[in-house]
Write a protein that binds this DNA or RNA. Structure first.
Lengths: 216, 216
DNA sequence: TAGATTGTTAATCGATTAACAATC
DNA sequence: TAGATTGTTAATCGATTAACAATC
């Protein structure tokens, strides 16, 4: 049943969308859905959805469709959302604070166990139930808590040395919001570089080159 | 020279990365770079980079490579970054504040002209030089300023009515951080839905299914 | 049983890579 | 001129779509 091999990144990136939508349906009390209905709502083809889901196993019932609740749970399991991996967040600025709240009210896959900053003004403050710790205590904390993941909300200049430090502490998974890619530096690390600026520039491209508005 | 037709989305999504990297190079004083050097740094093939750039015109010099400064400027122009489109931001919570700062210190394509919120505690506060306005004054403000884009940093429940309101005010471009997709509702609107949670869940999938750590 | 809808294979489409002629 | 590297075409690879047999 777990065929799972060589799942392409494009499929993986669609899983959270499926999951979110199914969760919404479940909340609404919908029990059953067909790939055709799903496709209409998500703007994909029914074929693609069936193809995607079948990478992981046959979750549907022929002639009937998919059970919303079951499918949602299955995808949640595939994503590994119940693991509650321990995560630390570095940088308690606005973005850090926003992420910290985000994570807590939509705890999907991770538990935030520590927040760190180097500014005296931030240290000691409470964000979402966690006290902001002095970055100097990072080593002690990590050796004790053994977090799996680090969220980086620090300025570009701080990332390089910080990621080295975290890597040395055994962290192999980074959610990076700084404007500095930490891709492929460490062969065995998993990195998500989130570039909000890239998204903004893409938007800019799209307005600028929109056939609707370019008069020419 | 401007061949620009049917540029695929995958190419467009790579443009900001090129732009960022070239800007960095320029700051470092690098004047010349070949597609091969670029490819090594960006983790792409030289072929792909040349292919991408040639969608928009021949910016290189055969036998020599690309002028960093010129190429950076060209890509900036393609992206339309100098337009400084007027943008309003709705929702002055942590995320809104983070974005507002983001936009201002890395002004690429847009100028933030107004910030709005509905909470008395937020209204009147100053974020990055802009005073948070009462959401009730949105219509008056937009009729005057005619912003092009709206950044949505509001809870899911608020998005639907808010986007309708903004659409009615002539806004056709949305940068949406709420957990509610406003895709394809309005045929002529340009939308970037940023789902930070999707990125997080993808990360969770990748740790959970990492061949490095799954013992089995 | 008939109708519906999945699971899965085959066909198509598009994006990436390779190759090389053009040319600085 | 020789060396290097682009611009561009052709080949390959992978992802999406279409089709249909399996089956609930």
């Amino acid at each position: 049943m777990p065929k799972r091999e060589n799942i392409s990144m494009s499929v993986i990136r669609r899983l959270p969308r499926y999951y979110r939508f199914l969760k919404l349906l479940r909340e609404k009390g919908v029990t059953r859905i067909s790939s055709t209905e799903l496709s209409a709502k998500l703007g994909l083809t029914a074929s693609q959805i069936r193809q995607d889901l079948n990478c992981f196993g046959g979750f549907g019932q022929q002639g009937y469709g998919y059970m919303v609740d079951q499918l949602c749970t299955e995808i949640g399991n595939i994503l590994g959302l119940s693991h509650a991996y321990k995560a630390v967040l570095i940088g308690a600025g606005n973005l850090g604070q926003a992420i910290a709240s985000h994570l807590s009210f939509e705890t999907e896959g991770f538990t935030l166990v520590g927040i760190f900053d180097n500014a005296d003004a931030k240290i000691g403050r409470t964000i979402n139930g966690l006290t902001v710790r002095n970055i100097d205590t990072l080593e002690r904390f990590c050796n004790l808590e053994k977090p799996t993941m680090a969220v980086l909300c620090v300025p570009r200049s701080a990332v390089e040395s910080l990621s080295d430090r975290l890597y040395a502490l055994g962290i192999r998974c980074f959610w990076n919001f700084s404007h500095y890619d930490i891709n492929m530096k460490y062969g065995d690390a998993i990195v998500e570089n989130v570039h909000l600026n890239d998204s903004l520039m893409t938007l800019c491209y799209r307005i600028t080159n929109d056939p609707m508005r370019t008069t020419k």
